[in-house]
Simulated assay, not measured.
Amino acid sequence: MLALPLHEFDQTPAGWRSLDAEGCEAVGADAIARYRVVNHEALAGEDLGALIWHEGQLRAAAGQTEAAIALMLEGRDRESEGDRLYADATIAFLRHDREALLAARERLLALPQPEWFAAAVERYKITYPDHPLPTWPLNRDKVEGFIACFDRPYREAYGCDAQGNVK
């Protein structure tokens, strides 16, 4: 697994996602951390934002909150404005800061839809015909779930909808 190219390791079931099961979050996070160490030279210059984010998500699900926040902050400034706001909302949730979470949601909802989004949705529809279509702003559903399930653990809240139902 550690010898896989970055995309395969991070985005396919051949990589860390094969370890993403309830109770195994720390194992998955450790696999990502190990992958980054083992492949450090090969990854030089690569955009590691998604990989670091996924390790942070797994650490959050494992209850390793401070480590999760540190990872999420590590790549935050390299991301798009929408992704930064999603990171802000996630970090606010992990810090149990409802006021900051609500403020991040308001800033996320205020983002204008970019011109490229409609074409991206059309491509997504063709590529993933059995998946729900993305809506703007991206990750709004996750942020709404964090608000609705504010007092629940991250792994559960990540799967909540805006009404507090776990998907």
Rank of each mutant, 00 (worst) to 15 (best):
G56K: 00
E22R: 14
R76Q: 11
P132Q: 06
L6N: 08
H54R: 10
G23V: 03
R107C: 08
A14D: 03
H96G: 03
A31R: 00
A14E: 10
A21P: 01
N139I: 06
H40K: 08
A26M: 13
L48Y: 13
W116I: 09
L48A: 05
E115T: 13
T135G: 10
W136T: 15
E106P: 04
L85C: 03
M1T: 13
A21Y: 11
D77L: 10
I32S: 01
Q163D: 15
A50Y: 05
A103G: 09
K142N: 15
Y158M: 12
A148V: 11
A42I: 06
H54A: 05
L48T: 09
A157Y: 04
W136H: 10
K167I: 09
E156H: 06
L85N: 00
R152P: 07
P13I: 08
Q11H: 10
A68P: 02
L48S: 06
L4Q: 07
D88A: 08
D30A: 13
D77I: 01
G45F: 08
R84V: 10
N139M: 06
R59V: 01
A26W: 12
T65H: 15
A87R: 02
G145W: 02
E55R: 13
D83F: 00
I52T: 15
G159V: 01
N39I: 01
H40E: 07
R34D: 06
Y35N: 05
G49W: 02
E22S: 13
P112A: 12
L94D: 14
H7V: 14
R78L: 05
R34S: 05
G63W: 15
P5A: 02
K142E: 14
I147G: 02
A100Q: 14
G145F: 02
A61L: 06
T127L: 08
Y158H: 14
E156A: 07
R59K: 15
E22K: 14
H40V: 01
A67R: 10
P112H: 07
G56Y: 01
R140F: 06
K167G: 11
A31K: 00
W116K: 09
A14H: 05
E156W: 04
A33K: 08
L4Y: 12
W116Y: 10
E106M: 07
A104S: 07
M1A: 07
L133Q: 12
A68E: 01
G15N: 03
E79K: 11
L102T: 08
I91T: 00
I91N: 00
Y124D: 10
A118H: 03
Q57G: 06
V37L: 10
L19Q: 07
A120H: 04
F117P: 15
H96P: 03
N165V: 14
I52G: 02
Y128A: 03
A103D: 14
T65R: 15
R78Y: 08
P112V: 11
T12A: 04
A14T: 02
A67C: 07
Q57W: 03
E74I: 00
R152S: 12
G82T: 14
E106K: 13
L51V: 14
C160N: 07
V37F: 08
K125H: 05
L71F: 01
G28P: 00
Y124F: 11
D97L: 05
A157I: 09
P137Y: 03
R152H: 09
R98Q: 08
L51P: 02
R98I: 06
A148E: 13
L109P: 03
F146L: 12
Q163W: 12
R123G: 04
A33S: 11
